[in-house]
Computed example of a mutant assay.
Amino acid sequence: MSHAIKLHEITKSYDGFTAVERFSLEVARGTVFGLLGPNGAGKTTLIKILTTLMRPTLGDAFVEGHSVLTAGKEVRRLIGVVPQENNLDRYLTARENLTLHARLHGMRPASYNPRIDELLEMTGLASRGNDFPDTFSGGMQRRLVVARALVHEPRVLFLDEPTTGLDPQSRRALWDYIRGLRHKMTVFLTTHYMDEADALCDRIMIMDHGECLADGTAAQLKDAYSRAHTYQVEFKRDAERYEGVLAGLSFVKGVEREGAVFQITLADEESIKPLMDHLGGADIRRICLKEPSLEDVFIALTGERVRE
């Protein structure tokens, strides 16, 4: 079996509202998979189903071949979960939080004590093992939550928006740690940070309203949904005059301006020559094809409207 996660036509309905409908997915072992979508897209519903916190209305899901419907206990044994919130026990020290998790998974002291030492060292918390989580920064607490999820050496790790609220240094440190898990286990990641998905994920799926909109590597998604005829042009002077010139050109389909920098969308690739003929070259500081970002793809697929 090459797939660590498999969802087969999952449907979840709540009092007449369908959050996910006939959703299918397969995630290969040893990969970092990213699930992206706006609020209400169905991401949390799928994670709750996969981690046995919620039963689907129809369909079934499998983690390492075990059904979430009929083998929930085995699924829970195989997974680690990092939820959105830092749900550490504030009345236990960092080491005690990890020890409690290990004992809940039936581990013996001879197995879990060396494992806890290793994880505290790997997450940079070795000197704080006897301190309480309330004395930690947000980034340190987040690293401890990740360490807790890894104590029992899960085969599949679920990360639900793991870096929300972290400072850039803490985010980067957690990124490095997640990269180190690649190939050792399967990682299922949800995030609202497009740069995070771009940097970490071997494969990305964008979903909305419970359905898959796009699926592939970050590069494949950006190539498929890029605006291939959009250029950035910066003028040395006379930006106002050139704004009027651009507005009168039939092959210019869109213009966005920020100071002296224009983002110009053309009708086709042949339009670049007549554009340059109209603009000339003397007042142009630079011109370049606009490279798409994963955020551009996300907005193109899910729209610009703010979700509740």
Rank of each mutant, 00 (worst) to 15 (best):
D89G: 01
V81Y: 13
S111C: 00
L78E: 11
D60Y: 01
I79S: 03
R76F: 05
F62K: 00
A110H: 11
K73V: 13
T99A: 15
K73I: 10
V82M: 08
A71G: 10
A61M: 06
T93C: 12
N97E: 09
A94W: 08
G80P: 06
N113T: 07
L78Y: 01
S111R: 13
H105C: 05
P109S: 07
R77K: 15
Y112K: 01
R95A: 13
I79E: 06
V82D: 02
R77A: 12
G65F: 07
N113G: 00
T99M: 11
H101K: 13
Y91G: 01
L104N: 12
V81K: 02
R95Q: 12
A102T: 08
P83F: 11
N113I: 03
L92V: 09
F62L: 13
L69Y: 02
E64V: 02
Y91T: 15
G106M: 07
V68C: 05
T99Q: 14
F62M: 08
Y112S: 02
H101M: 15
G106I: 03
L78K: 15
D89P: 00
V63W: 04
N87P: 01
G80F: 04
A71K: 14
V68P: 00
L88Q: 07
S67P: 05
E74G: 01
A71S: 14
V82S: 05
P83S: 13
A94M: 11
